Computed example of a mutant assay.
Amino acid sequence: MEKKVDIAALGELLINFTEAGYRQDGRKLFEQNPGGAPANLLTDAVIEDPAYFTTLAFVENDEIGERKFSFARKPGADTQLRKEELDQTLISDCKIFHFGSLSLTDEPAEGATIKAVKMAKEAGALISYDPNYRPSLWKSKEIAVEKMRSVIELADVMKVSDEESILLTGAESYEDAADRLLAMGPKLLAVTLGEKGVLMATQNRKEIIKAFKTKAVDTTGAGDSFWGGVLCGILSLNKPIEKLEWEEITKCAVLGNAVTGLCVQKRDGIPAIPSKEEVLALMQKSGC
Rank of each mutant, 00 (worst) to 15 (best):
V217E: 04
V198T: 14
A211T: 01
R205S: 10
D179M: 07
D179V: 00
A211H: 03
A177Q: 10
V198S: 12
K187P: 00
R180Q: 15
D179T: 12
K196M: 06
A216N: 05
A183Q: 13
G194N: 08
A190M: 12
N204I: 02
E195V: 12
A183G: 08
V198I: 10
L188G: 00
M184K: 15
M200N: 03
K196N: 12
T214G: 03
R180C: 04
R205E: 14
T202Q: 05
V198L: 09
A201N: 06
A177D: 10
E195I: 08
A178C: 04
L188Q: 04
I209K: 11
A183K: 15
K215L: 09
L182K: 01
T214I: 00
L188N: 07
A177M: 09
E207D: 13
L189H: 09
L193E: 03
A177I: 10
G194D: 07
F212V: 03
L182W: 02
V191M: 07
G185L: 11
L199F: 09
I209L: 10
A178H: 05
A177F: 11
K213V: 13
R205V: 00
V191I: 14
K187R: 15
A177P: 06
A190D: 06
A183M: 12
K213D: 14
A201Q: 06
A177N: 11
A183D: 14
K213A: 14
E207Q: 15
A190P: 01
I208Q: 06
E195Y: 04
K210D: 11
D179Y: 06
Q203K: 13
L193Y: 02
N204R: 10
L181M: 06
L181N: 03
V217Y: 08
K196E: 13
A178Y: 03
D179W: 05
A178P: 02
